[in-house]
Design a protein around this nucleic acid. Structure first.
Lengths: 248, 248
DNA sequence: GGGACAAGAATCCTATAGGAATTGACAAAA
DNA sequence: TTTTGTCAATTCCTATAGGATTCTTGTCCC
């Protein structure tokens, strides 16, 4: 398993410019968590990462602290770092309730503002998704990347950096993706995204708000149904066997 | 200036237990920013802090990275750390728009939930404020502390940790306090708080939501009025002369 | 056979040193 | 008078070492 090329980042061999080691460790660890190479609730040893990246322990510590600020790892003082555990049903409820507070408002704001209207970018994003589906690559990862970009475009167009930052801090797509690696209702998701994009493109504020609300309701319904049926057990089973150690 | 006792934290002389230096540096720096000893947009040199606290530079770096995650300092790579600059009118608008999204919902949720109803705690908080007003101490700081606790109680009672965390990350009270150190409408604030507390205590969800919305509207109106009249100039003038260096 | 204690190993956290880059000033030329 | 080039000082970032704490493993006793 250690010999796997791990297409995450560069091998980091003959480059040690000033002020870059910490950023590299941050990028690599973040990518590893996003790609699922680091299972939820898995220990992260500092010197293992430092040996793997061939850098010292100090930049690794800095990267882990930044990741802790992003709620991607947790640190028990004196016991080291671990990736954040999986979300339970209650936390999933809380996450979607927050999205229900923020995103319908963002959709309405984006639709009302005619200069910053993201309708064209949303349409391009949907076309790109339809084109890339059926090609090579992991379908789940494709869907999550599309979902992140789609909702990120709407939040960006809403024009409120505070709301956007708060939304990004939750990493809702990442958490739901870690919970349910299976494709859940990808077709329905695309349809609902198309409805939202159409309402925004038509500058229909009320329609965009309603479409986004419906989308979040339905999305939570899909996730919760999968969780209570078999998702919870499957996630538990997966978390019991770590998929890949970080090094050695 | 260096001889001022600085009642922020312990002198940190004869204590160096494992795993505490970083936490101490974090607490001291955070308190200094909250108390205004560090002006907005002021440079923070690492070794100055390390000499002042008589610890090494490594825990100071860790504390600064945590503060960066809290949006209290910003770091230019290769150029060091600074406290976050003052908010402009546009950012103040964004901040209050976010509060308008979150807090009325929180007030309604807190009022509807009869078990977690914070009415008694809110009443106690208001009584404590009325009692401490007129006593010694800084009035501004007293008001900000009360405001933070009051809104924090409501967010806590809403029972959504995601929303609560997102709200706390904005540090809205801290930023507005840094913008306007003068007491602005303290009496009106207390009155509006009393209305919110009464509605929540009566389990009146719609009333609590409306009262909170009015409160945020009025609060933004007060701040914006002060900003456009003289606050902006006063804040600019203050930021041009640093109030106190961190050491030496 | 099961449980408890102890020793060893592993790991984390802090301290210190050194290299590299940026900032500011001063002088010279256009 | 303005601009530019060089130099020095300060400061940041990384690397390495050591002390303190926790986890694991082996052995002994009940």
């Amino acid at each position: 398993m250690t010999a796997r090329p791990a297409a995450a980042a560069a091998p980091a061999a003959a480059e040690s410019p000033r002020g870059k080691a910490a950023a590299e460790a941050y990028a690599v660890l973040r990518a590893m968590i996003l790609e699922g190479e680091l299972a939820p609730d898995e220990r992260i040893t500092i010197d293992a990462v430092s040996r793997r990246l061939e850098i010292s322990q100090t930049p690794v510590r800095e990267a882990l602290q930044r990741l802790e600020g992003d709620n991607l790892v947790v640190s028990s003082p004196g016991r080291g770092y671990s990736t954040t555990p999986l979300l339970g049903l209650e936390e999933l409820r809380a996450l979607f309730e927050f999205r229900l507070l923020v995103e319908p408002w963002a959709a309405r704001s984006a639709a009302v503002d005619r200069l910053a209207n993201p309708g064209r970018a949303l349409r391009a994003e949907l076309d790109a998704l339809e084109e890339s589906v059926g090609a090579d690559g992991d379908l789940r990862q494709l869907l999550v990347a599309h979902d992140t970009r789609f909702h990120g475009l709407i939040l960006e167009a809403a024009g409120n950096p505070v709301v956007r930052h708060a939304f990004e801090q939750t990493h809702c797509h990442l958490h739901t993706f870690r919970l349910y690696p299976a494709d859940i209702g990808g077709d329905r998701t695309a349809e609902e995204h198309a409805e939202i994009a159409a309402a925004i493109w038509a500058c229909d504020g009320a329609g965009a708000e309603a479409a986004m609300s419906r989308h979040i309701f339905n999305s939570f319904d899909r996730f919760a149904r999968a969780y209570t049926n078999d998702g919870g057990l499957a996630a538990l089973e997966r978390s019991s066997r770590p998929r890949m150690r970080v090094a050695r």
